[in-house]
Design a protein around this nucleic acid. Structure first.
Lengths: 228, 228
DNA sequence: CAGTGGTCTAGACCACGAT
DNA sequence: TCGTGGTCTAGACCACTGG
């Protein structure tokens, strides 16, 4: 058995024997190195592997921690993030990072709008930042959106304040790593794997309501898709 | 800028300038090391990063290659793998690895069956193995399944030979790494990231038809989910 | 057989976090 | 200030691939 695999298995038994509670810190890299009479490179090999498996995660320069349960998420249904989190025993938070009005240059092919609102938000579960999103929508159509409280459901604001109902959506889901600016927001190391979701939502007239890009930590989420 | 980031960017420009065709080999690690007057560890840091981003992939002891286009896949619709691949310009293959009749011990909670068929298959796009799947179904219900050609659509065989139609399905999708036995099948290194899909399909009587576990190379697939 | 990738050692320096 | 994680050097051995 390879050395880094042995170290991986050793840490795994620590997790399984509940010697390290969910969310708490692993022994330091140098402590593990000493325990196995090895080097930090090899220890990190094992840690990075466990991170890829989704069992542990690192927080920039703070250490390695045990991954909490994953949020089960249904991308194809109109679910409220808070509702969903609550049902599964999490406390959810949303933090608005920025709101800007921008010229529509990037999405001219899909938005006919002249200018767009661009929101950035971070979502957390039990105070752990797990998702970053960019939201784009027509600034004329949703004029004054920036005056509403954007820390909760945008869908609700669009429905109640702008009589806009989403009736259809399409999500494109892929696996990649967090862009560096997102890493900073989520306090993650550059290179952290993630699930990228590009979602477009449409109203009754088949008109594009918003265009969102979500980056989910890969070990914080599990998607459930029902078909037929 | 960090050294491994510079190496990453350098390789990226090679890809973007089409100096390396899709599917072909990158310069060797030692060549890159020399080019940057660095060490293999640092070069591998850059390569592993690009792999996590989905832009390149490694084949065990053969080298690093440029990732082809991703297959766009709709997990919530009854699509035929071959059809889908063909539409997108790929040639698809399916290889049956094994068929076994086993006692139902692992799935007693979901299958009422005494014994199960267990199939293992590998699916490829343009001769690149991109997916491994375990399929479980009731051995009494599909008695003699092993006598059919299992290199094509199981759904079709169930419909035509056993009058069984799938009307509902649920998929649970998560990001993890390939189990080691799957790595061997797909000729990948241990630790390769993947998309894991656990799918259950049901007939008109809401009875479970089959239970599948699919492992997709994360850089070979992009999922599209439509909602509402 | 030469060259490659996979694994590993034994150090080092720095920026940042905790205290 | 001390310990931590993030990055990096300069080697090494082995198993395997491809010619």
């Amino acid at each position: 058995m390879l050395l880094f695999q042995e170290i991986r298995n050793y840490i795994l038994t620590l997790l399984q024997q509940d010697e390290i509670a969910t969310g708490s810190k692993l022994p330091s890299e140098r402590a593990l190195q000493e325990h196995f009479n090895s080097t930090r490179i090899t220890v990190r090999e094992a840690l990075i592997r466990l991170e890829a498996e989704g069992l542990i995660y690192s927080q920039k320069r703070k250490g390695w921690f045990v991954t909490p349960h994953k949020l089960k998420w249904h991308p194809a249904t109109k679910v409220n993030f808070y509702e969903l989190a609550k049902q599964q025993g999490f406390t959810a938070q949303t933090r608005l990072v920025s709101v800007n009005k921008i010229d529509n240059i990037n999405f001219t092919d899909i938005f006919s709008a002249q200018s767009l609102y661009h929101l950035q938000r971070v979502r957390s579960l039990d105070n752990r930042a797990v998702m970053f999103e960019d939201i784009f929508c027509d600034a004329q159509r949703f004029d004054g959106l920036n005056k509403h409280s954007l820390n909760s459901s945008i869908t609700e604001i669009m429905a109640k304040q702008y009589a806009t109902n989403v009736v259809k959506e399409q999500s494109i889901i892929s696996v990649t790593v967090l862009p560096d600016n997102v890493c900073e927001m989520l306090e993650k190391n550059s290179g952290t794997p993630c699930l990228k979701v590009v979602r477009q939502r449409f109203d009754e007239q088949q008109k594009l309501v918003d265009h969102n890009i979500e980056y989910w930590l890969h070990n914080a989420i599990e998607m459930i898709v029902e078909g037929q």
